[in-house]
Amino acid sequence: MDLILIIKAIILGLVEGLTEFAPVSSTGHMIIVDDMWLQSEKFLGKYGANTFKVVIQLGSILAVVVIFKDRFIDLLGMGRIKNKHSEQTGGRLKLTQVIVGLIPAGIFGVLLENYIDEYLFSTETVLIGLVIGAVFMIIADRFGPKNPKVQSVDQITYKQALTIGLIQCFSLWPGFSRSGSTISGGVLIGLSHRAAADFTFIMAVPIMAGASFLSLLKNWQYMTLDALPFFITGFLSAFIFSLVSMRFFLKLINKIKLVPFAIYRILLALIIYLVYL
């Protein structure tokens, strides 16, 4: 395996890991970095490169499972999460609430998959998503409740779960950001930034895992022995950097909120537009 290709796998895993769960759009960053610099399609072919991006997403998914392992054990009925919110209210996040949040984007994702793959995976469309998503994040911070009632995912209602799920549909546009849309939506309807982020990450596991495994099944022929070191390196890189970035993000989100990420998105879009387009 070419050492240069291994280095590219590490870089793409780094980009995925640092951006998957921050509200800046990992898909957008992957498209920009790969299209403008790494160009993995030249080495793996179009569908092999797409398969690689699915594999490194699985690395990020594994990082979520590790960080929220107790929560997932609780959701599956094999344990019990105890915190001040669940003890005070007697409630806790239910698996059915997560499913309700997943349904809208799941339906639209299946219906629009071919259109999205064909027409929306370009640097130009990503820049549009980055800017519009940034504006939405600024609106959320500006108009969301100053003292949100929902401080924990254990206090989320079915109505709130469905509303966040509907807002998540915006993230089907590359560059808009799954976490950016759902955290912003959650903040607007009365969740704290941390509660919205936790719910976002928990929802991400089944929807990302399902989409990833379906894509792998369709493109399994590209998982050749020659390409395997590239895939494994990218997977491990994404897993490690996701672990680090998620822990950092979850500690800070209630303090820094969304506007700094929105500013970054707008500046990134402006720089890419001026320099490369």
Rank of each mutant, 00 (worst) to 15 (best):
I7K: 03
I11P: 11
L12M: 15
E16T: 04
G17D: 09
L18W: 02
L18K: 09
T19N: 02
E20F: 01
V24Q: 04
L44A: 13
K46L: 14
Y47A: 15
T51F: 15
K53M: 08
K53V: 06
V55D: 05
Q57D: 06
L62Y: 07
F68S: 06
F72I: 04
M78V: 11
K84F: 10
R92E: 08
K94F: 13
Q97A: 12
V98N: 03
I99T: 12
V100I: 05
G101T: 08
P104A: 11
A105N: 03
G106W: 11
N114G: 15
E118M: 07
F121I: 07
I128E: 03
I128K: 00
L130S: 07
V131H: 07
G133S: 09
F136I: 04
D141H: 04
F143W: 07
N147C: 04
P148F: 15
Y158T: 07
Q160S: 03
C169F: 06
F170M: 05
L172R: 01
W173K: 04
P174D: 05
P174M: 06
G180F: 10
S181H: 04
G185K: 03
A195G: 07
M203T: 15
A204R: 05
L216G: 11
L216W: 08
Q221D: 14
Q221K: 02
F235S: 06
F241S: 11
M246E: 00
F248D: 07
F248Y: 13
K251H: 12
F261E: 05
I266F: 09
L267M: 14
Y276D: 02
L277C: 03
